[in-house]
Amino acid sequence: MITDVNVNLSRWPFRRLPHDDPAQLVRKLRTSGITSAWAGSFDGVLHKDLASVNRRTVKDCETFGDGLLIPVGSINPMLPAWKDDMRRCREDHGMKIIRLHPNYHGYKLDNPIFGELLGLAVEQNFIVQIALKMEDERVHHPLMQVEMVDTTPLKELVEQHPNSKILIINGMKGLQKNRLIELAKTGNVSFEISMLEAVGGVENVLKLIPVEILLFGSYFPFFYLESALLKMQESELGNFRSNAIFSGNAKRLLAEN
């Protein structure tokens, strides 16, 4: 059983990707042993009509997923009616997970609106995914250079919202070690491995954070799916830790919501 908590539907704006067609994406996930995938949408990064993006995400999950894809809603609190978008995610679509792109949407985590969003997410029982980056900053399109999300304010905000459930995605390469440990200690913040680098990356990061907050994420189809799968082979983890990362932790997180 493998739950991939970081998958994207639709198209990356700057390049066609292999498997960016939903049928191909699902086929690749299935043949690679993925049994559940939390699927957001690349459209959530730049589109303004997120209600439409979220509807398409749900429809694609239903049409192509056959139970494999769990839809993740995109929310941009800098847009009008974002609270209604959140309500629709929960009430109309039954979503349990939302995905944020603070750097692409133009706000920092110390913006009061993010605190407000976090409060609403707790009320509505959402897991909140925060994407810290989408691409290596060195290879961004020259007209669209976007800095990685600064997580400095997150610890204090999480302490103000003790029931919040946050999953950092695309964060492990740029997140400093002290920040990683600080956020891990809150107990409310989890991480996934798609951008975790260095030899034996998974076994080494588990010297810093508890296994219960580390989840399997691939960032497929932007990254080759094999990258995250191979990381689990490169590290010596044992059955208990492997199972927790591959699916147990994600299932527990989702079941709590």
Binding site: A198, V199, Y224, E226, S227, L230, K231
Partner: peptide, 16 residues
């Protein structure tokens, strides 16, 4: 390596 993993780089070939 060791700043990168074998995994992420082998994946470029295995997954292509």
């Amino acid at each position: 390596i060791g700043g990168r993993s074998f995994s992420s780089q082998l994946a470029k070939v295995f997954g292509a």
